[in-house]
Design a protein around this nucleic acid. Structure first.
Lengths: 340, 340
DNA sequence: ACCAAAATTTTACGCGCGGAAACTTTTTAA
DNA sequence: TTAAAAAGTTTCCGCGCGTAAAATTTTGGT
């Protein structure tokens, strides 16, 4: 009992089972007979041995490492979806490692670069988008099974799963038109994320379908400080011409949070009530949008569905399944709150 | 030139340098002569070889892995500080891996458990706090050099670096008393984080020093959904007795965000201006507190100083330095905005 | 009880690198 | 110039495990 278990051989001796069988067990507990598995697991509790992960991965053709890459962890949206993805990887018996590109192209490249040496079994990545080094991601995805989520890059990876951003526009434009003035669209001039373009297109199409003239208000600003951009841009618009409509649909919740802040600074009451001067809506159902003043009307992304698709597609592929859909889009739901 | 470089031996041949010297170079580029280093680095560019990380770590007594553990990544405060810590690790030539306990004791334990097999050179951890399995963290810290940050656990790890939460109270209570009614203190009944206790104590001490009677308002709620707790708690207090003062100091910014939301729902104007009914202040300088309505007056934590202390203390110790201070506290700064 | 199939054991080799020992070459300093 | 120190080379072993092949044992169905 007091034997020092230093490696698999020691453990094999102590448990009375041959080392290759122990090895098989750790690769796949179901690969050994029930009675054997029970004996191993019993011994495991007695000696609390665990195989050396480096020695394992050195020889294995396929590790069980999964790289999870998101563009920014400072954004609670990605923090939340990353948490979801991580959980699912662990439940599937894989070992996820989380990386954030911090909105930076070079960092995204570096992450993939250092990921190479981890010999990952797969990669789940929400690319930066416009700024991504697409050639590099494509090259990587040809060596390592890769599933994209959130942000679409054409012809890269096994599959892509994300929100139907085009539909978002239809959904919320319908609602806004039904309940008040048709909205104008508030966005960044050069959005880093391709979803923003789909959202604009969705807005325009929805407006035209309802016989209204779409009106897009673009504000300048670079990077991922969306609240800041929304606030400064909002102040500028308010202080000059003002918005072309008393209803503003923001390209995403974080811009909306900034815009609400700008309206407050200019004492413009936000909301759908009589005494309000402007209605503001966003898209994403950002974790904080329930706590803005007033709470933000928005379109919720289906976190669960997106992370489920990413993980299940990847692991399905690893286990030999065929990829059925290259692109899977999930619908959003209208979240009605007081801001619009 | 078209030689396939499959391992260090191939690379040694191709570069005309012996394998042990190459090995030394990768362990510490400064351990080889300048001329040799240049030759290696030149060959490195030609062949883009990189050593097998698993084989390296299998044999090295000390890996260059650093575990970085935070209690929650959904909280932008931790996301931000984690980003800071990660960057410093990389700059120091180490390889950080980020983990979030997601506010969950079991997950924190699991993380440390799986971290064992990575043979990390060190651990940088912001513990959950009250919920942490202290015995486990202590045991871990005896095997792996560990530096705590943000949340203090007595007698664990090489050192602790965090904010002087006691001072926070003094700083903001002074300000609030100078500019209006002495504040009451708004907090969770059973805060998960020990910092909350220090903050309450700081508040009480500061109030007494100024000759005011401290008044603490505790609201119920479990977990890490502070905004939700602040909002629901705030609504309850408002709808019953109301706050004992027209100035409310919240234990942290996220509670304050929830409380501001509650005030808005009850149409209570927040701010320091004539027409406002309540002043609200927080503590943390949360990334979003600049965008609340009105922007939140708060105490900023010194992210840079905290992450710098954690990283430099750990790496200093790894390189043989003595630990000078077991506990290092950093002062906060008053951030004056419109809410108070 | 018998036999084929499945599981396990035995034996042996290799992965890519760290690191020690003994030796040779280059650099540094007097 | 010269000897000592430093750096590099050669040679070798070991880390802990994956994995293949052949021999052996166990299993399940008849």
């Amino acid at each position: 009992m007091e034997t020092k278990i230093r490696n698999m051989e020691d453990f094999a001796k102590a448990s009375g089972i041959s080392r290759p069988t122990i090895s098989k067990y750790f690769n796949d507990p179901n690969a050994v007979r029930n009675t054997t598995r029970e004996r191993i697991e019993q011994a495991l509790e007695t000696y609390d041995y665990r195989p050396n992960i480096f020695a394992m991965n050195q020889n294995r053709k396929l590790t069980r490492n999964i790289g999870v890459v998101v563009p920014s962890l400072a954004d609670p949206f990605f923090a939340e979806i990353a948490r979801n993805v991580e959980r699912r990887c662990i439940d599937a018996g894989y070992q996820p490692t989380l990386y954030s590109a911090h909105g930076n192209r070079d960092q995204e490249v570096e992450i993939l670069d250092s990921l190479r040496s981890l010999k990952p079994a797969g990669l789940l990545i929400a690319p930066l988008g416009r700024n991504s080094d697409k050639a590099m991601i494509e090259k990587f995805s040809q060596k390592v099974p890769t599933v994209l989520f959130d942000s679409y890059l054409p012809d890269i990876g096994l599959s892509f799963g994300g929100s139907d951003n085009f539909q978002f526009g239809r959904l919320i434009v319908d609602y806004l038109c039904r309940t008040g003035t048709p909205p104008c669209f508030f966005e960044m001039q050069n959005p880093a994320n391709p979803n923003a373009n789909k959202r604009r297109q969705g807005y325009i199409a929805a407006m035209e379908a309802l016989g209204h003239a779409p009106q897009v208000v673009s504000v300048t600003g670079e990077g991922w400080n969306f609240e800041e951009i929304g606030r400064n841009g909002g102040l500028e618009v308010i202080d000059s011409d003002g918005f072309p409509s008393d209803t503003v649909l923001c390209s995403n919740d974080r811009l909306a949070i900034g815009l609400i802040s700008a309206c407050f600074a200019r004492k413009i009451p936000v909301g759908f009530e009589e005494d309000s001067a402007i209605r503001i809506a966003g898209m994403d159902d950002h974790p904080f949008s329930r706590f803005t003043c007033p709470p933000l009307t928005t379109i919720s992304q289906d976190y669960e569905a997106i992370s489920k698709h990413a993980v299940e597609t990847l692991f399905g592929n690893l286990e030999g399944d065929e990829i059925t859909d290259k692109v899977v889009l999930f619908e959003g739901n209208l979240i009605m709150r007081k801001s619009a």
